[in-house]
């Protein structure tokens, strides 16, 4: 798997980030190193392993619809760099 510069540019756009060309190039290199590392799983011998098995839940095992207390508002927004009237405040973004 090869991640080229164009792919990185596209991800930059989708992530609504802005970076220098130099930084993106180095990111592409890092991405490729990570991809190479992950590629190693292809070499694993899985002949004897049932990797198709995944635990499947039945509906009755799901969480019951019962309210548990939420966190206090002050705590929820406590780490926000900016907050007002109990809301998180972020730079204006209109889709």
């Amino acid at each position: 798997m090869k991640i080229d510069f164009e792919e990185i540019k596209r991800l930059e756009k989708l992530s609504a980030l802005s970076s220098s060309e130099e930084k993106l190039k180095s990111l592409a290199e890092d991405f490729n190193k990570i991809a190479e590392f992950v590629e190693q799983v292809k070499n694993a011998d899985i002949e004897q392993t049932d990797i198709g098995y995944q635990r499947v839940l039945k509906i009755d095992e799901l969480r019951a619809d019962e309210v548990v207390p939420s966190m206090p508002q002050s705590e929820i927004v406590s780490n926000a760099p900016e907050k007002e009237d109990g809301c998180f405040v972020v730079p204006k973004v209109v889709e």
């Binding site: 009755d60 799901l62 969480r63 619809d65 939420s70 966190m71 508002q73 929820i76 009237d85 109990g86």
Partner: peptide, 25 residues
């Protein structure tokens, strides 16, 4: 009140895990 019905799952705090509501399904 804003953000008064929230927990780490609602605001996407790292490590928070979703658990599906039976009634919703």
């Amino acid at each position: 009140e804003p953000n008064s019905n929230c927990c780490p799952v609602c605001v996407g705090m790292p490590g928070a895990l979703p658990v599906l509501n039976k009634e919703a399904l």
